[in-house]
Design a protein around this nucleic acid. Sequence first.
DNA 1: TATCTTTACTAATACGTTTTAGTAGAAATA
DNA 2: TATTTCTACTAAAACGTATTAGTAAAGATA
Lengths: 329, 329
Amino acid sequence: MAKSIKEIARELNVSKSTISLVINHKAEKARISKELERRVLDYVEKIGYKPNALAKSLATGRSNTIGLIVENIGDSFFGPFALHVEELLRKKNYHVLYSSTLGDPQNAQDIIDFMLEKRVEGIILAPTINLEEHQRKILEHKVPLVVFDRNSPDIATHYVHIDNGDSSRKACSYLQSIGCKNFGLITIDSDQPQMLARKEAYLEFCAETGMQSRILQLPYHRLKQKGISALQSWVAKNVGLDGLFFTTNYLCILGLKSLRTEGGKQFDFPLFSFDDHELFDILNPKISCIQQPLEPLAKTCVRVLLKEIDRGISSPKEYVISTNLIKRQ
Amino acid sequence: MAKSIKEIARELNVSKSTISLVINHKAEKARISKELERRVLDYVEKIGYKPNALAKSLATGRSNTIGLIVENIGDSFFGPFALHVEELLRKKNYHVLYSSTLGDPQNAQDIIDFMLEKRVEGIILAPTINLEEHQRKILEHKVPLVVFDRNSPDIATHYVHIDNGDSSRKACSYLQSIGCKNFGLITIDSDQPQMLARKEAYLEFCAETGMQSRILQLPYHRLKQKGISALQSWVAKNVGLDGLFFTTNYLCILGLKSLRTEGGKQFDFPLFSFDDHELFDILNPKISCIQQPLEPLAKTCVRVLLKEIDRGISSPKEYVISTNLIKRQ
DNA sequence: TATCTTTACTAATACGTTTTAGTAGAAATA
DNA sequence: TATTTCTACTAAAACGTATTAGTAAAGATA
């Protein structure tokens, strides 16, 4: 359908090479006369020629595409993150092939295969469960890889993340500082390292201050169905609570829903969220949180990945981005 | 780096054709012996061969990729929409090359060029300003195109959308039904057709019911800087207001922020939003809204596009998806 | 005038696939 | 035994590009 260099060459009575050279601004280097160059350029412009990037990539070995694999492009963490990544890459003339795993290893498998087949030049990955094997596969194929947000402890890759333990610790101290003497932790029953780290820090805080630890682990996979009632009955049981620390923003939102539905001022104690949300500052009471700085996270991922692509794969490093404590009480 | 069919062929002492045929499950059709088939399959499995999708696409003319162009993948409308699209396409063995224009025509230009060059098999586009020319280009290149959410009146494409006028009308009636006799409309100073339609319906409602129309048009491009104070002073000026109808959810959020910052119960009248938001049902007061059913929207876009791809481009049609009125007062 | 340079290109090969026409040898048929 | 049919493959062309070595013609040099 679309015209190719070959056809253009025929129509202009010159060789394919000439067309290719002119189009790629190598006319001068190849001593193509100004006049012919103009003729080609004009013609190409006139018919609106678009080079076939597939063929181009095949010939050059460069796809100008990088893969971005997240859990859910639709959520309020990965969506804006993806936007930053896209923006940063656009400036370097790269484009993004993205995909959401939805936490399904089979999806992840397919996505990674597809990306490798598409010869993406690098991959940014927020791994979910059981992705060690896939990461290994990516590395075997010598495709630069940057992992962010979560990682698999037993596989060495470039890893961009926040300090979960430290951030969680800051959160606890803050709650203490505003008068909470008995706050609980709401988390999910997942063994993702970042979740474990957040919980660990809470437990350490309890051990150090002598506060009684109260932890509720909600079922990740049936959160929507079970979460609200589970949380409600747990709060009812735990008398004396004077604060709640949620380890993710969606848990905090779930918390808000649970505690609101029973009408009135069910909770007159502070809620704290790990991860911000665009409406946390207009809720009543306002919700303080740990904020992951998305842009620095994205910038680091992109910078590290591009360096790998440019200079070849180097030995894995960790990059820790510090979080912000947003005080709203 | 990655092994090619050619190398595999050499190593196995057979021809490239054989390898290709076996890999593509055409061994039987091509009368390759079971034994050789096994040998190839095993070897391919063993070395973890991944076909080069670029070469494959070049040979077959199919890229198995579709382009999705939205304004901002990070926002709460396009993000979840994109997720649905991805999920639906995954089932059909298609993948998504997405991009955000951020409302910048130059970005849009680049994105579309890139997608055409990548030979996407079809494009789903939520056009922003001045995209008529680009749409025309896509069509010229005979690439199936489905436009959603917004369209350019003077260019014929398949167009999936909600009925903005009708929905806006429903919203007005609802506000009236819950006792608002003097509600205003907050919108942006854009001439996007869907925004105009929402405003028009409000004006018609005013004309029919005799309600005085009060409209504030906020500057789209400087919303963050100017929006809040502009809204505050407008509300202060308009005495007697007893309700606000925001034509998008981000305007409604801006409204919440404006009206909250002045402390206390600045607004004791209902707010209504065009487009839902995950927290609208836990705010106090709860916010009613028009909800665009994302999944049906996505489903229709995908269905229409795939049909175009399969059966060839057909004459443009419109597909109207009906909205839901979510009553929360 | 014979040789060397320069100019302005082109031919040929490669990238990694798919696909179709072709073929050597074995088996079946007449 | 000569011909036909099968079997099990392979050769070759094609997809659309980039790149490098090569070349014919013109001009410069000695």
